[in-house]
Design a protein around this nucleic acid. Structure first.
Lengths: 136, 136
DNA sequence: TGCAATTTCTATTAAATCGATAGGAATAAT
DNA sequence: ATTATTCCTATCGATTTAATAGAAATTGCA
């Protein structure tokens, strides 16, 4: 299941992208329009800023704005920051690989075999979608 | 992330399928060979029995056996029983659909748009894999 | 200069879920 | 009977998730 963090993060990015201009958008406005707890959204936007998707301006008339064009923001990158590894098991993760403790041999592991396919197909979707695509 | 329940369940099914014959396989044997907590595995096999994948024989020389041929056991069905909905959000689930509380319009929701694609690609993988395929 | 609006940061908490454990009842083979 | 196994219910500890609280820092503006 997708975490609310990811869901809200995607919605917030979409909201900002749809505004079109580069004016800072305030947390409160996004929270209200997307029905998200403002405090929770705060921490999510902070994460997105620290990972290079958003810029921020403090103080009055402050807020968040996109640093890159929506068409340059890949879902692979957004998902990895918000949700973590795309793979469902560490032993098939490209960016966060870890050997399973309980599994002596990946070559004969049926879970490994299935999850590699799931990873690749999911990755394919995320690679082929930018923020622009999902904001249309 | 895949739950251990699903991981262990798949490993157990694979273990039984690889034995080839229809002799009951004991929980203890599977747990030992696949490095799974026996008590936890008990509850998983019970679930798989109740949902029609396994049969069981009680008492001495008892155990679990496959009810259908491995080539007739689809991953879509196994995954739904062990892991639950395949969709990452309820609003794109085919079998467990629920409207999102916070989302007034699915047609304009970017999360919905992205997650439909993920669902379809994942579903495609599970549809094209039987227990026989992953046990090879 | 001071006030108001906003992001930033740290800490805490409530609830849910997950993985594992415990113990005994029922059943079957010998 | 005895032994080995599945079956069932209940519980627990740890972790994670989602949300909350409150105050510091920054900025715009009168």
């Amino acid at each position: 299941m997708l975490s609310k963090k990811t869901k809200y993060g995607l919605k917030a990015l979409t909201y900002i992208a749809r505004k079109g201009n580069n004016e800072p958008v305030q947390i409160g406005e996004i929270a209200k329009n997307e029905h998200i707890s403002q405090k929770f959204l705060e921490s999510i936007l902070l994460t997105l800023r620290k990972s290079g998707f958003l810029g921020s301006k403090k103080g009055k008339h402050g807020g968040y704005y996109l640093i890159k064009k929506p068409s340059d923001i890949l879902m692979t990158d957004v998902m990895r920051v918000l949700e973590g590894p795309i793979a469902l098991v560490p032993c098939v993760s490209l960016n966060f690989y870890e050997k399973c403790i309980d599994c002596p041999d990946e070559a004969t592991c049926s879970v490994n075999k299935l999850m590699i396919q799931v990873r690749d197909s999911t990755l394919n979707v995320f690679k082929n979608n930018t923020l622009e695509d999902i904001s249309k």
